[in-house]
């Protein structure tokens, strides 16, 4: 397959791809990895420092829960929340972007002013407001993250559609009497999937960080379920005495975001016909 052949030629893209696959695989296989229960603590084993070959390779937290296990189980929640938010935001944003670009006129104006309004409000504040009002739950967090995300798709996709709309194959579809829906679904959507995919990878990285931030502020997934941002918040208090409680979740966040960004960068080049022919 050309995809993997091309990927193998880019060290950076490959690195990002490997990191991502590794994290997803670990998250999926978590129950079968023989890890400790991430929610059960042991007060006799509080704040055990990392011991690479012992029972707690990355140490334990302030109530004696295994940090490695919490990071692995936390990745399930983080990746699920981030993935769901990217998909939801991507679908809504792409759809509204196509609608604004193709329909034009008053529809376009209303949607784009909505985007402008939302851009004027700091995203974190918007997220805080909504979660505080609706209460923290996984569904609400996904909804809030998707809400902060759709505008980025909508803007970029709308721009693409404005130029696609004038292409002759779209005119030709109108000349055969195809309906607006048909033109949007069959002729425009397939031609904007590539930019949408690229936005999605960039958004995935941003959403992981934002999810961690929400959890850090106590508005994400609720304890005792592990989440990376929550671990950072809890471990922060002990940073001078138990550096591992805050360092390892931080490293996990950093690695995931790095992986997504590296892979996303490569993906953008891969789909760009200009850089493609230059190789």
């Amino acid at each position: 397959m050309t995809f993997f052949k091309e990927l193998a030629r880019s060290k950076v893209g490959m690195a990002g791809f490997v990191i991502l696959v590794l994290f997803v695989a670990v998250a999926v296989l978590a129950p079968w990895l023989g890890l400790e229960d991430p929610t059960r603590g042991s007060l006799r084993a509080r704040m055990v420092p990392p011991d690479w070959w012992g029972p707690h390779p990355l140490g334990t937290d302030e109530v004696g829960r295994d940090i490695l296990s919490r990071i692995v189980y936390g990745s399930r929640i983080t990746l699920m929340v981030a993935g769901a938010a990217v998909v939801a935001g991507g679908i809504v944003g792409t759809f509204l972007g196509i609608l604004a670009g193709y329909a034009g006129g008053i529809t376009d104006r209303i949607l784009m002013r909505l985007v402008d309004i939302q851009l004027a409000i700091p995203l974190m504040m918007l997220a805080l407001l909504v979660v505080a009002a609706l209460g923290p739950s996984m569904v609400n967090v996904v909804a809030v993250l998707a809400l902060t995300s759709w505008i980025r798709y909508a803007r970029i996709i709308r721009g693409q559609v404005l130029s696609l709309r004038e292409r002759e194959f779209v005119q030709s579809a109108r000349a055969i009497g195809a309906s607006g829906w048909r033109i949007m679904l069959r002729h425009i959507l397939p031609n904007v999937l590539t930019p949408a995919l690229v936005v999605a990878t960039l958004e995935l990285a941003r959403i992981i960080v934002m999810d961690a931030a929400l959890s850090f502020l106590g508005l994400g997934v609720q304890p005792p379920n592990p989440s990376w941002g929550r671990m950072l918040a809890d471990g922060r208090t002990y940073i001078s005495t138990a550096w591992w409680a805050v360092t390892f979740p931080g490293v996990a966040i950093m690695l995931t975001v790095l992986g997504v960004n590296l892979f996303g960068d490569w993906l953008r080049d891969y789909f760009d016909p200009k850089t493609r022919s230059a190789r």
Binding site: R167, F169, Q171, S172, A175, R186, H187, P190, N191
Partner: peptide, 22 residues
């Protein structure tokens, strides 16, 4: 729509007149 079947258009630029993803 029924009249669209009776009258058609052929465009100048054959590169831009085909949907590249179809």
């Amino acid at each position: 729509k029924p009249l669209r079947a009776r009258m058609q258009m052929i465009f100048q630029d054959p590169y831009s007149a085909l949907n590249p993803r179809m």
